[in-house]
C-alpha cells in the first residue's frame, strides 16, 4: 500500500521495510531535477524531519520524512542521475528505505485516490 503526505512524499510499507520518495505530482511541479541531497544510512528520523533536499532548475525543496524510522538504504544512483525522479518518481526514483516504521503512523496519510483528489485543489 502506498500512502501520500500533504508535502507530496510517498511511502510504501512492504515486509517491514518502508520505501520513500517524492510523488509524481511533486516532480511535475518541480520541473527538471538537477540535484538531490540524500539522507545518511543509519540516520534516525521522526515523522516530519527533513530527510533530504531536492533541487530543480526552478527551486530547492526539503523532503520530509512521511513517518519515523531508521534509514536502511539510500538510492545513490540518484546522485549522478537525479533526472530519474522526473522519469519514475514513484518507482526507480525512490529516495531511501526506512526500517522500524510504526504502521499506525501511516493511517493518517492519504490513499492514492485521496491524494489524487488533494492534488486537484
Amino acid at each position: 500500500m502506498t500512502r501520500y503526505t500533504a508535502d507530496h512524499e510517498w511511502i510504501r510499507l512492504e515486509g517491514g521495510i518502508a520505501t520513500v520518495g517524492i510523488s509524481n505530482h511533486a516532480q511535475e511541479e518541480l520541473g527538471d531535477i538537477t540535484y538531490i541531497e540524500l539522507p545518511t544510512v543509519g540516520q534516525t528520523l521522526k515523522h516530519g524531519d527533513t530527510l533530504g533536499v531536492v533541487e530543480s532548475v526552478k527551486a530547492a525543496s526539503d523532503i520530509f520524512a512521511p513517518a519515523g524510522g531508521t534509514v536502511a538504504t539510500v538510492n545513490t544512483a540518484l546522485e549522478d542521475a537525479p533526472e530519474t525522479i522526473n522519469a519514475a518518481a514513484e518507482s526507480d526514483g525512490w529516495i531511501c528505505t526506512l526500517t522500524g516504521v510504526d504502521p499506525t503512523e501511516l493511517a493518517d496519510l492519504m490513499t492514492p485516490s485521496q491524494y489524487a483528489e488533494f492534488c486537484k485543489d
Partner: peptide
C-alpha cells in the same frame, strides 16, 4: 511561460 517542454530539454 516558464517552460514548454521542460527547461533542460
Amino acid at each position: 511561460p516558464l517552460q514548454y517542454a521542460g527547461v533542460l530539454a
